[in-house]
Write a protein that binds this DNA or RNA. Sequence first.
DNA 1: ATGGTTGCTTGGCAA
Length: 264
Amino acid sequence: MRILTWNVNSIRIRLPQFFEIIAKYQPDVFCLQETKTPDEFFPLNDLVMAGYPYYHFTGMKSYNGVAIFSKIPLSDKQIYNRYNKNDCRHISVKVDDKEKPFELHNIYIPAGGHEADPEVSDSFRHKLEFVDELTEWFSNERSADDAVIAVGDFNIAPLENDVWSHKQMLKVVSHTPVEVEKLTKFFNSIKFVDAVRHFYPASEKLFSWWSYRSANWDMADRGLRLDHIWVTKKLVAGLKQCQVPRDVRGMERPSDHIPVIVDL
DNA sequence: ATGGTTGCTTGGCAA
């Protein structure tokens, strides 16, 4: 079972790169974030024809949007309206794998703006409260004994080596202590395991995003690990491999995020 | 400290 998550930053403009990635990695299930389109303009037929007859997605004009596509049948499709907004950031499905069914959550946590102060910034407060809601929901509605996978662009880089400079990022939204603390509470809600750091030691730098505003992203390498795949303990023994293909950032007209891929 | 880029039913935002 191969699962891929990718913030495509518009599915419509990224279709050529999307086809190349899907052909190369051939995931069984993939989750997209920032599809940036209302459902009526979603290129559904293109994705189905790529080999994914089962799907669940929700989008809106210009912003956000999440999608799950699968070669394996899906059921119990849910859309969550967090923070009293219909902002298309969290969906889930059951992946009805014959041997090991599991529940899959695709989550796009708000970026949170530039000002890391919830008193001043509505978007930063939105981000913190969004994560609080996730923590509460998983604590109340799911258990550490369930087979659950949570993936997506969490817009938080929790570990020191998830950012290019821990010291220089401490006051920058995505790596502030308050965000890391809240993400850690969400992580601990049903005792998730970080399936990526399961393979890449925490002592080594690992990024999944580089800003567009850097002429030389590769050399400067001011990246962040914002994109995550977490699994509950039932699934840990089945973890086989992980890939975070950095070269995807060097494609023509790239997304600012690269895919994260886990085999179970 | 500032500005740097991309994408969005094109024009000021969000990322």
